Simulated scan of single mutants.
Amino acid sequence: MAIVSTKAIVISTIKYGDSSLIARLYTNEFGLVSYLIKGILKSKKGKLKAAYFQPLTQLNIVASHQEKRGLQSIREAQVINMYKTLHLNIVKQSVVLFLAEMMSGAIQEEEENQPLYNYLEKAFLWLDNHDNISNFHLLFLLNLTKFLGFYPDTSEIHKTGFHLREGTFTDFEHEKEVVKGEEILQFKKLLGINFDTIESINFSKKQRQDLLRMLIQYFELHLGGFKHPKSLHVLEAVFSR
């Protein structure tokens, strides 16, 4: 058994028994790790508090890791990069729950990937510090595909269709799984931009919904076992106001 210290981002938690949690954290040092946190829901004096394990919270943890063990254990946790708005603003709360669910299905690697960790850390801090965030989730998901290995090949971006399974642009618009027309025009607006410039892009409610459903389908085609997010309808309801 080794005692380790690492930064970590909370992906999801589920209740275990009456007083414990199983938390899935994306860590800077070890990739995705599941932890059993015993008694956290009843303890009021311990070093671990349930509030630390809200989705996307950024932590420093001290943990016990044992090889070939499915559930590791956390000894200490400290919130870092404390959010000011992410868990208080109703719109951002909906984005957080949706993105946490998407990441829970998409990120499976149990090994270090510091570029991915750095991307998540900076992206969520950007979300916390900005108000115009209606397109954030679209660019976040598109950029996430860079780290998962299926970012669109833009070498022929001038073509009029995008083949979702192949991840390439094409002129063969009649083929199955090819996105074309208005949808592809809007999709191209997302390519090559960063979060600071996304505020200048205007999508209608329908365009935003169509793009999001396209991106979800893209994930489904490239990730085995990926499940359609249950929280999608909540997010769409928030952004349709």
Results as ranks from 00 to 15, higher is better:
1 M>L: 11
4 V>K: 08
6 T>R: 05
8 A>G: 13
9 I>G: 00
9 I>A: 01
10 V>K: 08
10 V>H: 05
11 I>M: 09
12 S>T: 08
14 I>E: 11
15 K>Y: 05
16 Y>L: 12
21 L>W: 01
25 L>K: 01
27 T>F: 09
29 E>R: 12
30 F>G: 03
31 G>V: 02
32 L>T: 06
33 V>Y: 03
33 V>K: 04
34 S>F: 06
35 Y>W: 10
35 Y>H: 07
40 I>K: 00
42 K>E: 03
43 S>R: 09
49 K>I: 03
50 A>V: 11
52 Y>E: 02
54 Q>K: 11
55 P>V: 03
60 N>I: 04
63 A>Q: 06
63 A>W: 04
66 Q>I: 14
66 Q>F: 14
68 K>R: 13
70 G>R: 13
71 L>A: 05
71 L>W: 10
73 S>N: 09
73 S>I: 09
75 R>Y: 10
79 V>T: 11
82 M>Q: 14
83 Y>G: 00
89 N>F: 09
91 V>N: 09
92 K>G: 01
93 Q>N: 15
93 Q>W: 04
95 V>N: 01
97 L>N: 09
97 L>F: 13
98 F>A: 01
98 F>D: 00
101 E>Q: 07
102 M>P: 00
103 M>I: 04
104 S>A: 08
106 A>N: 07
106 A>M: 06
106 A>R: 02
108 Q>I: 13
109 E>Q: 15
110 E>A: 13
110 E>N: 14
115 P>L: 10
116 L>H: 06
118 N>K: 15
120 L>N: 05
121 E>I: 03
123 A>M: 08
124 F>G: 00
128 D>W: 02
129 N>F: 12
130 H>K: 11
131 D>L: 15
135 N>T: 08
137 H>C: 04
146 K>E: 03
148 L>V: 09
150 F>K: 02
153 D>Q: 12
154 T>M: 10
155 S>K: 11
159 K>F: 15
162 F>C: 08
165 R>N: 06
166 E>S: 14
166 E>T: 10
168 T>K: 12
175 E>L: 15
177 E>M: 12
177 E>G: 07
177 E>T: 04
180 K>M: 06
181 G>K: 07
182 E>S: 13
187 F>Q: 03
187 F>K: 01
189 K>H: 12
190 L>R: 04
190 L>G: 05
190 L>T: 05
191 L>S: 09
192 G>F: 12
195 F>W: 10
198 I>V: 15
200 S>N: 15
200 S>L: 11
203 F>V: 05
203 F>M: 04
203 F>N: 03
206 K>M: 07
208 R>N: 05
209 Q>G: 05
213 R>P: 00
213 R>V: 02
213 R>H: 07
220 E>Y: 08
221 L>N: 02
223 L>A: 04
223 L>G: 04
227 K>Y: 05
229 P>L: 02
229 P>F: 06
229 P>Q: 04
230 K>Y: 13
230 K>V: 06
230 K>H: 10
231 S>K: 11
234 V>R: 03
236 E>H: 07
237 A>N: 15
238 V>T: 08
241 R>S: 11
